[in-house]
Design a protein around this nucleic acid. Structure first.
Ligand SMILES: [Zn+2]
Ligand SMILES: [Zn+2]
Ligand SMILES: [Zn+2]
Ligand SMILES: [Zn+2]
Lengths: 344, 344
DNA sequence: GCCAGTTCATTCAGTTCA
DNA sequence: TGAACTGAATGAACTGGC
């Protein structure tokens, strides 16, 4: 056994242990579907002859199509829809379904199932031909084979994508000016439908904010502030966000530009002044910050500066630390001499 | 957000502080090599996405791969991806990963993590089959095993490379136009010297300190202690690990179970006692902790608890605040009255 | 040979419209 | 309702420097 393998074994023993902990923990608390591989579940087994028969056919054809890979192009693997038995092309929402059942699920899965009523007491057996006769039973079947409605993208996600897309297009056309970035950032927002409310589209300017981070490849990162924030919280957050945005825009990056290729990271990081200045610029924009007393203000700034004790050498990494640091809001203590060794 | 999701996120938070402590602590001290136990046997390694269209197919591929098992040419070593567990070929960005996770990391590591949202509160356990279901958790896992985004080449370098390549081709054909020559001439020809390259070569020797800000959702799966750790460090790390393990086992999770669907996040987090107890339980197991003086011990515990004072209901934002806070390990100060309101 | 980057066919979301 | 779209993400298979 090589020393490499030996190492693997040692690590692995402890690994499984930890993994068990986490898995148990997760299973107990959360809704994780670990039956990912159980394609045919109970309900499917209870299905009628035809469908289970076609499942058998499916298995067979799958196997054969694997052995002789040269099968038809249009329906590559002879898959059949788990809902209606029609030919399928692949997975949709975690299960093999046909196009129509996919669309059907997309449209209806998020609605309340019991708004559809079955005229036959919910006993319909869905197949390719009768699938549109009973919405209730078709949807029931969808859930029975474990199609996952949580894989339908939320309104929020969709909006985010649209925004990204828009941004890309813009960027392609010409380099974005700052004004244009702002424009995109302030786009009127579509807010997800409220549960139990009939309100469709709400326009709320402060509901979602676009913060552009220094190093981000996509300057636009959208944060959808949850709708049930209190107004005060929303305003506060808004202020923080805007301050950040302004801070990022206005901050003096000359200390970065001062660096030459021979400037070491440590030198760079030790240039505390600039970091302080940026932080102050950031905080200054927040009215709530001004209201706090001076000592606390100083503390806030101070404790958000990390002193470089390591010879970290990557700026991007540091910038992340740094932006992370700005989120830590400490209180009360008088002096900090940061060090990472606890038992000093 | 459904109350279910809401819960997931809450629960997730409670599990996080343990990992925060141990991971950050360890990361700060050591360059850790994390690897996984190969819970799949060798046959499973030949599993692949296309083939595993169904359970049956999995079985089939298992059987077939058992018969012609000796084809170990494509995967020379028994390496497995530290992110998803798939067969791996070697190191990518400082960790052993599969091809897909490599590409994934390349694509996403430089983006802001919070543009990806987890539908399950960031608790997904990534494996070979579900890896593309949750970008957020997959990326998180990448960082958790210490894949290094600073080894991704910069835009600058990329541009230069492309140009060089183009230049070579053109030169071969003697087709360089004047414009193109000009273009090339105007490019910064100084290649930023990548320290990553050096590290690659001297990976075994250099003991680089890696400070990761990444909050890992997973309890540490395993720590493969790096070969060139000092004995002392190794023992210390061991102790921390064991403490974590014990802490996770023994910790009283009743405060989680106490929560009903009407418990607010703030109420939950304000249940300080339980958090303290768990933390103490964790630290108690580490001999080095006992050796430190009492004030430091108290400080260490305290500084790893943040009190919620805002009724933020956007948990994503909150969780970022929170996770950043737990990384802050202060020393030497006598008393902290932690609170998130600066101007108190 | 290793490990960066690069390319491109494929999969599976959403979208459109007859 | 569902066939036919669009497009982002993925990952296998490349290239190329050292
Ligand atoms: Zn169908
Ligand atoms: Zn019916
Ligand atoms: Zn992987
Ligand atoms: Zn997730």
């Amino acid at each position: 056994m090589s020393s490499n393998e030996h190492w693997n074994q040692i690590c692995n023993k402890s690994s499984t242990y930890f993994e068990e902990c986490s898995i148990n923990f997760a299973n107990n608390l959360l809704n994780i579907d670990i039956n990912y591989f159980n394609i045919y579940d109970k309900t499917n087994q209870e299905d009628n002859e035809k469908i289970s028969l076609s499942n058998k056919i499916d298995e067979y054809s799958l196997q054969t199509s694997m052995t002789n890979n040269s099968s038809a192009e249009s329906i590559p693997l002879n898959l059949i829809c788990g809902v209606c038995g029609a030919p399928a092309h692949g997975y949709n929402f975690d299960q093999i379904t046909c196009e129509s059942c996919r669309a059907f699920f997309r449209r209806n899965a998020l609605k309340n199932m019991y708004q559809f009523e079955c005229r036959f007491g919910g006993t319909c057996v869905i197949n390719m031909h009768n699938r549109r006769q009973c919405t209730h039973c078709r949807l029931k079947k969808c859930f029975a084979i474990n199609m996952r409605k949580d894989w339908i993208r939320t309104e929020e996600e969709r909006r985010l994508r649209q925004l990204k897309k828009l941004y890309k297009q813009k960027k392609q056309l010409n380099e974005l000016s700052l004004d244009e970035q702002q424009l995109i950032a302030n786009l009127p927002l579509v807010v997800r439908k409220k549960k139990g409310t009939k309100s469709l589209i709400t326009r709320q300017v402060t509901q979602e904010l676009v913060v552009s981070k220094i190093e981000s490849i996509y300057p636009i990162d959208t944060f959808a502030i949850h709708r049930n924030l209190s107004n005060d919280d929303r305003i506060l957050l808004n202020n923080i966000m805007n301050a950040y945005k302004l801070g990022a825009d206005q901050a003096d990056y000359s200390h970065i530009n001062r660096c030459t290729s021979s400037t070491t990271l440590v030198q760079f990081l030790n240039d505390e002044t600039a970091i302080y200045e940026s932080l102050i610029c950031f905080y200054k924009q927040i009215p709530e910050f001004k209201k706090s007393n001076l000592a606390d203000q100083v503390l806030l700034i101070k404790s958000n500066v990390l002193y470089p004790s390591y010879s970290l050498s990557d700026l991007r990494f540091w910038s992340e630390l740094y932006s992370c640091g700005t989120q830590y809001i400490p209180t009360g203590s008088s002096e900090h001499s940061l060090s990472l060794v606890p038992g000093r």
